[in-house]
Amino acid sequence: MQNTKKISLLKAVSWQTLGIFSTLITTWIVTGSISLAGNLTFAMTSVAFVMYFLHERVWARFTN
């Protein structure tokens, strides 16, 4: 299978989905509250998204 941009995007989406669900399940088990687990998962995913974007921008400065 050729590793195209479309495949890379699909892999990124599937990886992020797996991460979101594993975080949700783990925090639900630890807290015992699905509501709190959902809020924590949303917060963690949001922070991770921003941090990844900033990480990419820093790397772009060094590679361009």
Rank of each mutant, 00 (worst) to 15 (best):
M1A: 13
M1S: 13
M1E: 12
Q2F: 12
Q2E: 15
Q2P: 15
N3M: 14
N3G: 06
T4R: 02
T4D: 13
T4P: 02
I7W: 07
I7D: 10
S8N: 11
L9K: 07
L9W: 07
L10H: 08
L10R: 12
K11S: 10
A12I: 03
A12D: 12
A12V: 08
V13Y: 04
V13H: 03
V13R: 01
S14Y: 04
S14E: 07
S14D: 03
W15Y: 15
W15G: 02
W15M: 09
T17N: 01
I20S: 00
I20V: 14
F21G: 00
F21S: 07
S22R: 05
L24T: 00
T27M: 09
W28C: 07
W28G: 06
I29W: 07
I29H: 03
V30M: 06
V30S: 01
V30I: 15
T31G: 04
G32V: 08
G32P: 01
G32A: 04
G32R: 00
S33N: 10
S35E: 10
L36G: 05
L36I: 12
L36R: 07
A37L: 00
N39P: 00
N39Y: 08
L40P: 01
L40W: 01
L40Y: 11
T41H: 04
T41V: 06
T41G: 00
F42M: 10
F42A: 15
A43P: 03
A43V: 13
A43R: 07
A43E: 07
M44K: 05
T45A: 14
T45W: 05
T45N: 08
T45R: 02
S46H: 05
S46M: 13
S46R: 01
S46E: 05
S46L: 14
S46N: 08
V47G: 02
V47D: 02
V47Q: 00
A48L: 05
A48C: 03
A48E: 01
F49W: 12
F49C: 09
F49P: 06
F49Q: 08
F49D: 07
F49I: 14
V50P: 02
V50N: 04
V50F: 10
M51V: 15
M51G: 11
L54G: 02
L54Y: 12
L54R: 10
H55I: 00
H55M: 09
H55C: 06
R57P: 00
R57F: 06
R57V: 15
V58S: 06
W59D: 05
A60Y: 10
A60Q: 15
R61S: 11
F62S: 09
F62T: 08
F62G: 14
